[in-house]
């Protein structure tokens, strides 16, 4: 497990390592990349949902006996960072059928070399919801931080944001720990470092390209 309280890493089982071995391999074709990434994303979503609260309730069983059960508490929505983050939307919908999905487009400004916000579309009532922020790679944390700023400006509570990513760098984790200590970061694996080009090492390449194009 991770050493940070609000950073939750999936249990590093053999099965999970096997899935990562496949998606890291540059010889893995897109069909397999999508299939095995989707499996990891599903595990991330289940782990994320487990962070949500439940409350006690009485239910009626088919025999008419009441039973001390539990029900889910709080509404959620997903917000994906275009384009790679959209690959995680289906995984969320597999667990929450009609979940609302907001989108944020952030791109690097060619002149200033800093991330710039291009497009935001979020559900109206997002301040009342738990937000699953979706981006498969957490590298420098630059665009994810900007997305979080957008959410906070819209009135989302920091402790109600869950940031789901497939792969994280220690640097990216550090950024979130410092800037947004109340956000729960749910990640499948934390890699060794960033290289001089700000790629995660060993990483898995450009997630969006591999999921959509290559």
């Amino acid at each position: 497990m991770s050493q940070y309280e609000n950073v939750i890493m999936l249990p590093q089982t053999n099965q999970l390592k096997c899935l990562y071995t496949i998606i890291r391999d540059r010889n893995t074709r897109r069909g397999d990349f999508i299939f095995y990434s989707d499996r990891i994303i599903r595990l991330l979503v289940e782990e994320g949902l487990n962070q949500l609260p439940i409350e006690s309730c009485q239910i009626q069983t088919p025999l008419g006996v009441s039973y001390d059960g539990h029900k889910f508490l709080g509404k959620i929505c997903g917000v994906s960072i275009i384009r790679a983050g959209e690959s995680m939307e289906q995984g969320l919908r597999d667990c929450c059928r009609s979940v609302r999905l907001g989108k944020i487009l952030i791109q690097r400004d060619e002149e200033t070399a800093t991330p710039k916000l291009f497009y935001v579309k979020l559900p109206e009532d997002i301040p009342e919801r738990y937000v699953f922020l979706l981006d498969p790679l957490l590298a420098t944390g630059g665009s994810a931080s900007m997305a979080v700023d957008v959410l906070l400006q819209k009135g989302v509570k920091e402790e109600r944001i869950l940031f789901l990513n497939v792969l994280a760098s220690p640097e990216g984790i550090e950024v979130f720990k410092k800037k947004f200590p109340k956000i729960k970061v749910i990640t499948g694996m934390i890699d060794q470092a960033l290289d001089e080009k700000k790629f995660v090492v060993p990483g898995l390449g450009d997630f969006g390209d591999r999921y959509y194009c290559i």
Binding site: Q15, C18, T21, R24, D25, R26, N27, V201, P202, G205
Partner: peptide, 27 residues
């Protein structure tokens, strides 16, 4: 599926960025 046998992956797996995977696992 956690109970399935897994073994170390061959050491020639390379990521798209050219890094070698040393601790890979295969089913």
């Amino acid at each position: 599926l956690e109970l399935v046998h897994y073994s170390p992956a061959p050491s020639d797996i390379i990521t798209p960025n050219g890094y070698r995977i040393t601790d890979g696992v295969v089913q």
